[in-house]
């Protein structure tokens, strides 16, 4: 149990998502089937993954949110979940397909780079803030990743000379929601840091990069508000912002400044 047979769950989810993605692009006459079949397969894959997350949680006796591998697990759940909800709501086939692909990619990374399923949780992480802080952040990251998928699509369509005028509005929907969660995550983190380390903000490298990411999306929101028709520049701001988010998430551990960070729990 636990990470030990993660492969089975992961392959089951990958298979279901694979079938779901293919069924998205099959031609059917009936409108209902074209929506329901892919939605059902995607949802089944999500259910398998959620089951695994819950079993892992029970098994290791602490929330599975500590290591990078564990956060990737949440990500590979939340991103397809967002893709599915927006598919049901706005019928964006490509978005569901891409988010399933990204979710699947993260599952593959976890299969190739398994980690110890270590039960220990250092005392600083044992706090009521731990779960809300991490969940809210994972939500934010997944929504903001969805917005960058939209931006990528927009830039690609633009490059091919095709229409993409509805995409920036979709990106905005994701960014506003994602930024809201990002702000909450940042502030929960500050309130928690005060309880655990005595100060709410110490410009620790992880905090610093979280702040950088936050300002980048702040710039996007304001730029969009002021210049409703400069779509192309806005999409590029969004892509740069996501690059900074990736540094915050994965890259910080490798930076020279991170040697004495309190937030780098590599394992």
């Amino acid at each position: 149990m636990g990470w030990i047979n993660f492969e089975y769950y992961a392959f089951a989810a990958l298979l279901l998502w694979g079938v779901g993605s293919v069924s998205l692009y099959l031609k059917t006459d009936k409108q209902g089937i074209g929506v329901r079949v892919p939605a059902l397969f995607s949802a089944a894959g999500l259910a398998v993954l959620m089951l695994f997350i819950l079993l892992l949680w029970l098994k290791i006796d602490r929330p599975p949110m500590r290591t990078l591998g564990e956060t990737r697990l949440w990500y590979s759940f939340l991103l397809p979940a967002i893709g599915l909800v927006s598919f049901l709501r706005w019928r964006y086939k490509w978005l569901l397909a891409y988010s399933l692909l990204m979710g699947g990619l993260f599952l593959l990374i976890n299969i190739l780079h398994p980690e110890t399923y270590d039960k220990s949780l250092m005392p600083a992480l044992q706090s009521v803030w731990f779960i809300p802080h991490v969940i809210v952040y994972m939500f934010a990251y997944a929504l903001l990743a969805a917005s960058s998928l939209v931006a990528l699509k927009a830039v690609y369509q633009d490059y091919r000379g095709k229409r993409w005028n509805t995409l920036p509005n979709l990106a905005d929907n994701f960014v506003y929601l994602g930024f809201s969660f990002l702000t909450m995550g940042l502030l929960f983190g500050a309130l928690w840091a005060k309880e655990a380390w005595g100060h709410y903000w110490t410009w620790d490298p992880k905090e610093t990069w979280a702040f950088i990411t936050w300002t980048a999306y702040l710039i996007y929101i304001h730029y969009r508000y002021k210049h409703q028709h400069r779509h192309k520049q806005a999409m590029w701001i969004l892509l740069i912002a996501f690059g900074l988010l990736m540094v915050c998430w994965f890259g910080v551990n490798y930076l020279p400044s991170a040697q004495n960070s309190v937030h780098t729990y590599t394992s």
Binding site: I212, T215, I219, K226
Partner: peptide, 25 residues
Amino acid sequence: ASVPAAVTSAALYCGLAILLGIIPQ
């Protein structure tokens, strides 16, 4: 009080934070 000032001042802050996030303090 306008967006261009907000964007440039946030970008300056963000740029300094990037230095802060790279150079050990």
